[in-house]
């Protein structure tokens, strides 16, 4: 009934950056798989994760918790979680929570490389 998929892009040699796309909805049911899959990406050595949210149609508080947890974990290893192009609806949820100041939300992938290049 509920659609959810995480498409993880293959790692480039020697790169600590990984990209993944979330499709569908992130709620208390789908978030379990989402966290597990993303953790394995982090465990494989990525400390910069770019999460494409363009096709994320819905996010519940459980989903936001997962993003928050990942942000904390990555920052501990001096990494970062970038949220790429969230829809207006998802942005509104971030704004309501006041999390636009915590999450790194970007509109272009180029912003990630320039931020990382600093």
């Amino acid at each position: 009934m509920k659609n959810y998929e995480l498409v993880v892009h293959p790692a480039e040699d020697g790169a600590s950056m990984r990209k993944a796309e979330v499709v569908g909805c992130l709620d208390s049911h789908t978030v379990v798989g989402f966290e597990r899959e993303l953790q394995s990406v982090v465990d494989s050595g990525a400390n910069v994760v770019v999460l494409d949210l363009e096709s994320l149609s819905y996010i519940s508080s459980a989903g936001i918790s997962a993003l928050m947890g990942l942000t904390h974990r990555l920052r501990k290893s001096e990494g970062e979680l970038y949220l790429l192009r969230p829809t207006e609806k998802v942005r509104r949820v971030f704004r309501t929570l006041g999390f636009t100041t915590i999450f790194r939300i970007v509109d272009e992938e180029a912003e990630v490389s320039s931020a990382q290049g600093k």
């Binding site: 918790s65 947890g69 904390h72």
Partner: peptide, 8 residues
């Protein structure tokens, strides 16, 4: 709370 848990 854990770092990822929040309350609105």
């Amino acid at each position: 709370t854990k770092e990822s848990v929040f309350i609105t």
